[in-house]
């Protein structure tokens, strides 16, 4: 919808549409995304309740919920969440800073790309879990090695995203900057940064996703706290409800942090003229 539509017409359209249905659709649209998981959960609950399954290995939602409540009451849950969150935050911050700097340098400066990029690409080809033994030897079994592993996971998508985005900035737009005789820093601030922002946001979101993935790997390698520890603990003590509870919390935290990035960057990307605009992305 463009602002070319005369104001008068627009208000007419709004008046013509019943207010109640507008309000309803505003509530219904996000709820649509909940339909599938809720009906699956309800179905499983019903199956266990009706006796089609004993629910021992796949606990019904009520049992998972009870486990979460129990963990929350004892204060354990918030401790585990805080530990995992702080690891992801530290690793994400490190990975983003390193990925952005190196990505920007090799995107902007051809010589740096030829020097740096082959090595980075070769390192990227290593499955990141392969670093675990080395990181433990180098950095010990405590926080440092865990944060380092997460940072490695976050680094690559951010690096690739920033480099690719800078590399593919439209030459015609850069020429506009040259005509107005922008200095190097001004060119970066006024042309390159805004031009790469959409791709950068995508890179951040991919990086965050990998950060959540690697925090689990990191917490598998010997942790006494954290959601990953809850998973291992649940496996060793035969508590599937605790495993599913931890998985559900991972899903909620992952989705929430992703949504926060989207929310924080949305005002910066209002100018975009893209297919997805106004189609009610989640």
């Amino acid at each position: 919808m463009t602002i070319e539509v005369p104001v008068l017409e627009q208000t007419n359209a709004d008046v013509a549409r019943p207010v109640a249905s507008v309000r309803l659709s505003r509530l219904v649209r996000p709820a649509l995304g909940l339909l599938l998981p809720l009906s699956l959960a309800l179905g499983w609950e019903l199956a266990v309740w009706l006796g089609y399954s004993n629910g021992r290995l796949v606990p019904p939602p009520t049992k998972v919920f009870a486990t979460i409540v129990e963990l929350a009451k004892s204060g354990e849950l918030s401790r585990h969440i805080a530990t995992t969150l702080s690891r992801v935050a530290a690793g994400f911050a490190l990975g983003v800073v390193a990925g952005t700097l190196l990505g920007a340098v090799s995107g902007y400066w051809g010589l740096a790309r030829r020097l740096l990029d082959p090595t980075v690409q070769a390192l990227r080809a290593i499955p990141s879990i392969a670093w675990v033994p080395l990181f433990i030897l180098w950095l010990g079994i405590f926080e440092t090695s865990k944060v380092a592993l997460i940072a490695v996971g976050v680094f690559f998508p951010v690096y690739l995203g920033v480099m690719g985005a800078i590399h593919s900035v439209d030459r015609k737009i850069v020429e506009v900057g040259r005509i107005f005789r922008l200095s190097g820093p001004a060119m970066i601030r006024r042309i390159l940064l805004p031009a790469v922002l959409p791709a950068y946001v995508v890179a951040l979101r991919v990086g965050l996703g990998l950060g959540w993935m690697f925090v689990v790997a990191a917490e598998f390698m010997g942790a006494s706290e954290g959601l990953g520890y809850l998973l291992i603990d649940g496996q060793q003590l035969g508590k599937p409800a605790q495993i599913v509870a931890a998985i559900v919390i991972f899903a909620i935290l992952g989705k929430t942090t992703d949504w926060l990035i989207e929310l924080a960057t949305a005002p910066l990307l209002r100018w975009q003229d893209a297919f997805g605009r106004g189609r009610g992305a989640a």
Binding site: I173, V176, R178, R181, L197, Q272, D273
Partner: peptide, 18 residues
């Protein structure tokens, strides 16, 4: 190099979309 007293208009508007 580009000069302050010389402006140019291209075939496309080349506006900055942001």
């Amino acid at each position: 190099a580009p000069h302050a007293k010389i402006g140019i208009i291209f075939q496309e508007p080349r506006l900055l979309p942001w």
